[in-house]
Amino acid sequence: MLEGKVKWSNSEKGFGFIEVEGQDDVFVHFSAIQGEGFKTLEEGQAVSFEIVEGNRGPQAANVTKEA
């Protein structure tokens, strides 16, 4: 699992980007967020995730919010 911080997200469009130190930003779709209820990410929020190869390149999977 990698750790990063949410660079920005748009809940209306359903995606955002995660900033990882020393690496390119990672695309995240809201379907990759683990948990119940409305899935949102806040700018600056710490997250853990895996990287998978998506249709348009690397993207985050199994995203969990850190406490």
Rank of each mutant, 00 (worst) to 15 (best):
N55V: 14
K39R: 10
E66K: 15
F17E: 00
V6R: 01
A67E: 12
S31V: 03
G22T: 03
G35D: 08
T40H: 10
L41C: 04
E43S: 12
N55L: 14
E21V: 11
V28R: 00
L2H: 10
I18G: 00
E36I: 11
R56T: 07
R56Q: 08
I18T: 03
K7S: 05
Q34T: 13
K5R: 13
S48V: 12
K65M: 13
F49L: 04
E21S: 10
N55C: 15
F49E: 00
T40Q: 09
T40D: 08
V47N: 00
A46F: 14
F30C: 06
A60P: 02
A60T: 01
F38M: 12
G57V: 02
F27S: 01
I18P: 01
N10T: 06
E53K: 11
A32Q: 10
Q59N: 04
V6L: 07
I51H: 01
V47G: 01
A60S: 03
W8V: 00
V47M: 03
K5F: 12
G37A: 09
G16D: 01
F49V: 00
A61F: 10
E50A: 08
F27I: 01
G54N: 06
A32K: 06
K13P: 03
E36R: 09
V20K: 03
F15N: 00
S31A: 06
G4C: 06
G37L: 09
H29E: 05
N62V: 05
K13N: 05
Q34L: 14
I51E: 00
L41M: 07
G22E: 04
A32N: 08
G16C: 06
V47Q: 01
F17N: 00
E50K: 10
V47R: 01
I18N: 01
L2D: 03
T40A: 08
G54Y: 07
G57R: 06
G16W: 15
N10Q: 05
S9H: 09
Q59A: 07
V26I: 10
F27Y: 09
Q45D: 14
I18E: 01
I33Y: 05
I18Q: 01
M1S: 09
S31R: 05
F49G: 00
F15A: 02
A67N: 12
T40M: 10
V26C: 06
E43A: 15
Q45L: 07
F38L: 12
E19H: 11
F15R: 00
D24S: 12
R56E: 05
I18H: 01
K39H: 10
N10W: 09
T64S: 10
F17Q: 03
A46Y: 15
A32M: 07
